[in-house]
Amino acid sequence: MNKDHAASLYAVLELAPGAGLRDVQNAYLRLRRLYADQSIVLEPLEEEFTADRRREILAEVEAAYQKLLVVLHAETPKAEALLPDDGAAGTGPDETPAMVFGGLALRKIRERLNIDLNEISRELKLRLELLRSIEEERFEALPEETYLKSHLRSYARYLGLKPEKIVEDYLGRYRARAKK
């Protein structure tokens, strides 16, 4: 990817070129909230920011974000790069190795991003109880693998995480438990 192109992606997220993963995720979430809902900052400009225009902006933001994620993940291939500074993944309930995403790591990342479970439930149309069970690793309460996989993917994407890595790690733990 050339520099100008990367700069234009950052510009869509209203960031200076070279901003880190955390800034990119925060900007993405902030812009998505801003243009997804009506608010007092958009209300006076209803004619400018029509539902269509807002969808357009959201699509641009989404596309720029997904492309930047690829770039940033290529630069920081280790899973730790996705985590908050305190290395949340390392403190799982049963000594999860540092590189594996379990329910607790997901919850910590979500909390660090200040995203409420209710919000995810509303946006992704997933039951709150299901999301809680994922974070608490109550595997017995979770649906069968095919469904779980799809839920995990949307949840991971919502947090701005790479879905493949999350699904792989989480299902690994899920299957290990199922064998017992």
């Binding site: 209203e14 902030r30 812009l31 608010s39 007092i40 400009l45 400018e48 920011f49």
Partner: peptide
Amino acid sequence: IFLGTAVKSVLLKY
């Protein structure tokens, strides 16, 4: 406080 950030984005686009 965060309205300031939102207004900034809106004015840039508007």
